[in-house]
């Protein structure tokens, strides 16, 4: 964990993403380019977004756990307009995908897709996690692997 960054700096870095105490460790993970998803240490179930207890067994023993970042595009849109964000230009429609992670059926993480023309990005495509720097903020993204799902 990045213990070196203070809570104040952490919150100011991710305030636009709605950081709170329940999601703080997830955002600390981003600084080290680790995608941490809450996992219950009693029943083994992952959940998303971060909650204070396991929604399945109510255990409070929640461990933010690094996932592989491999998955399949379940949901996909292209923004022709959207909120201002550093380095985001909607003149080429901007892909946003919810990726079903390999760790657990129905567990999804939402991010953009980089490195492929829009006409190659589709529901069902396999992807893997990567990271970009967005005005100093480490930002998770996915890339197509080229494998069929």
């Amino acid at each position: 964990m990045s213990e070196l960054i203070s809570d104040t700096d952490l919150v100011s870095m991710f305030i636009h993403l709605g950081i709170d105490r329940d999601s703080a460790e997830h955002f600390r993970g981003r600084i080290e380019h680790r995608l941490l998803i809450n996992r219950c240490s009693e029943c083994g179930t992952y959940h998303q977004p971060p909650r204070p207890i396991c929604p399945r067994c109510w255990s409070t023993s929640i461990v933010p756990t690094a996932v592989s970042g491999n998955g399949t595009i379940d949901l996909l849109i292209f923004l022709h307009q959207g909120p201002p964000a550093p380095g985001v230009d909607y003149t080429t429609p901007y892909p946003v995908a919810s990726v079903g992670l390999d760790e657990q059926e129905g567990l999804r993480f939402t991010a953009t897709i980089i490195g492929s023309p829009n006409d190659e990005i589709a529901i069902g495509e396999r992807v893997t996690l990567d990271w970009i720097d967005r005005a100093g903020i480490p930002t998770p993204v996915f890339r197509l692997t080229g494998d069929a799902s």
Binding site: H16, L75, L76, G82, V88, T110, A111, T112
Partner: peptide, 22 residues
């Protein structure tokens, strides 16, 4: 501070519209 990388709120309907077509 906008965040484009989300399916939050109204964007979510677009996501499931795309899934419906698929």
């Amino acid at each position: 501070g906008g965040n484009p990388d989300t399916m939050w709120g109204p964007v979510g309907y677009t996501a499931w519209a795309s899934r419906y077509i698929h």
